[in-house]
Design a protein around this nucleic acid. Structure first.
Length: 494
RNA sequence: GCGCCAGUAACUCAGUCGGUAGAGUAUCGCCCUUUUAAGGCGAGGGUCGAUGGUUCGAGCCCAUCCUGGCGUACCA
């Protein structure tokens, strides 16, 4: 619980509003109504013809203009806003309390008839009103709204009230997630839940959050990915599962990374990564049509087109084309470094070359030299095996994995592969990761004995798929930072 | 981590050369029946992010710290 000890009014405005609560109690018993029955919302009411009645609306008062015996104001609800006009000649003794006790930020209910003002705005001529809830603090200044980026995050509720674009973006987020869930459900997927608190942080290469569980006197980790548990579910007999998995990584925060983020993963028995690419295109196009009714989106000044079938290019060809380094030829870290030197590429500012493995260096090459230039959707396929410790080896080329990443606007949106289900191979890959870690590589994946045991009991061939929901939403809603698409991102305490 | 910028009333912001704190919105009082950033007259409201320093005097100059934003680096 946070500190709620000192709730004395911070200024004269709060004192005044508290005094008004006393008046409201005397008049109506309470400044906080029990419930209120509406007939319309503001969006629907806007479309009604003049003379329509009764129209009963409820919402927050976001503006008031007083003229002695006439008051204009705007009521805002989730769907829109509506002007109301309150006249003393109509409301009689109910007029003065409205004029005197209702402040901007308060919630009221109004009942009346639709009319259009002389200036042409659809409005409600109020015949009855009810006080619903008192705001003690004034809303931010009406014209500029709330512009301090810190305040927008710390008091997101004010941002939502005052910034229609912000509210619209979060509505879009909900719709995007709903469209994805519907599509998966309609294709036979089951939504399941897997542990967030785990004994081992596996399934990705990242630093976990560690905490302590007193009852078992053991350290536990917040999951960095749901992957190995979802695969256990497939081993148990599920054939199509997914989870919107809030995941946690104890790493940096910036416009494209958050300490907790939403990772959607799904797994399908008997599919391979190629089936998965086909499904991915269908899923993304479905979401775009459902939410935006268009397969093109505008991000900044760029139009990104998801329409035509997305090209597939191998990791090796991409790197060869952009850097001249051939990852098939360079089987050791030293050979990669030598080729890089030949091509005049220096990554020493980016990574610690001494400690980095061949995999890390190739990954950096890709992230620096190739990925930023992929704008329209592209499937990057066949990543080197040592970059993919949970992915199935390609049948023709044992150096690469049956894997793809969907890259859009230089961002990795989806990462998927044919899953490794061979327990002997899996144990060996974990052993290699452990060795890399022992040699100083920080970016190595944690092995899990129980997961290998599960695999030893047998797993069907399958393909798995993961997507950063926050990034997808940012991309689809033209947001430059993930914090713009997360309602309440973690901030330092004030 | 590093670099740059910012923090003044509840909100948005001014504050000149270092001379004792300003506006608009919001609030309170008065006037006002067609406004929509309504208008007019009047009033109240401040630990100038914090601490220390320089100075007769600091919102302003200096140092350190706190908080945030942006850029950059790393993980999605």
């Amino acid at each position: 619980m946070g500190a709620v000890e000192n709730r004395e009014p911070v200024n004269d405005q709060m004192r005044v509003r508290k005094d008004k609560i006393q008046d409201l109690r005397r008049l109506y018993n309470s400044a906080y109504a029990n419930r209120y029955e509406r007939t319309h919302n503001c969006l629907i009411a806007q479309a009604l013809d003049d003379g329509h009645k009764p129209v009963v609306l409820a919402g927050r008062v976001i503006s008031i203009r007083q003229f002695g015996k006439l008051i204009f104001g705007h009521l805002q609800d989730f769907h829109g806003k509506m002007q109301f006009a309150a006249q003393q000649s109509v409301l009689r003794d109910k007029f003065d309390p409205l004029k005197r006790l209702v402040d901007i930020g308060d919630y009221i209910g109004i009942e009346g008839e639709v009319f259009t003002t002389k200036k042409g705005e659809k409005s409600i001529n109020v015949v009855k009103w009810k006080f619903l809830s008192k705001a003690l603090r004034p809303l931010p200044e009406k014209f500029h709204g709330i512009s301090d980026p810190e305040l927008r995050l710390r008091r997101r509720y004010l941002d939502l009230v005052m910034t229609p674009d912000s509210m619209a973006r979060f509505k879009k987020r909900s719709k995007i997630i709903r469209a994805i869930r519907e599509y998966l459900n309609n294709n036979g997927f089951y939504e399941i839940d897997t542990p967030i608190l785990t004994g081992k942080a596996s399934g990705a290469m990242a630093t976990p959050f560690v905490t302590h569980y007193n009852a078992l006197d053991m350290n536990v980790y917040l999951r960095i990915a749901p992957e190995t548990y979802l695969k256990r579910a497939i081993a148990g007999g599920f054939e199509k599962v997914y989870e919107f998995a809030r995941s946690f990584r104890n790493e940096g925060v910036d416009s494209s990374h958050l300490p907790d983020f939403t990772l959607l993963e799904y797994y399908v028995a008997y599919w391979n990564y190629e089936d998965n690419m086909v499904f991915t295109e269908r899923l993304i196009r479905h979401v775009l049509m459902e939410v935006f009714n268009d397969v093109r989106i505008k991000y900044g000044d760029t139009v990104i087109n998801f329409e035509t079938s997305w090209p597939r290019i191998s990791f090796r060809d991409l790197l060869l084309q952009d850097t001249g380094v051939d990852v098939y030829e360079c089987t050791t870290k030293e050979m990669v470094l030598e080729d890089m030197k030949k091509e005049g590429i220096d990554l020493s500012d980016e990574i610690d070359i001494e400690k980095a493995s061949r995999a890390t260096i190739m990954d950096q090459l890709y992230k620096k030299m190739s990925r930023p230039y992929l704008i329209d959707p592209v499937f990057v396929i066949h990543h080197p095996l040592d970059l993919s410790p949970l992915a199935r080896r390609n049948d023709e080329n044992p150096k690469v994995a049956d894997r793809f990443q969907l890259v859009v606007n230089g961002w990795e949106i989806v990462n998927a592969y044919s899953e490794l289900v061979d327990p002997v191979d899996q144990a060996e890959r974990f052993r290699q990761q452990a060795q890399a870690k022992a040699e100083g590589e920080i970016e190595a994946m944690e092995g899990e004995t129980d997961f290998v045991t599960c695999m030893e009991y047998g797993m069907p061939p399958m393909s798995g798929w993961g997507m950063g929901i926050d990034r997808l939403v940012a991309l689809f809603t033209n947001a430059s930072s993930l914090r713009d698409v997360v309602l309440f991102p973690l901030l330092r305490p004030e």
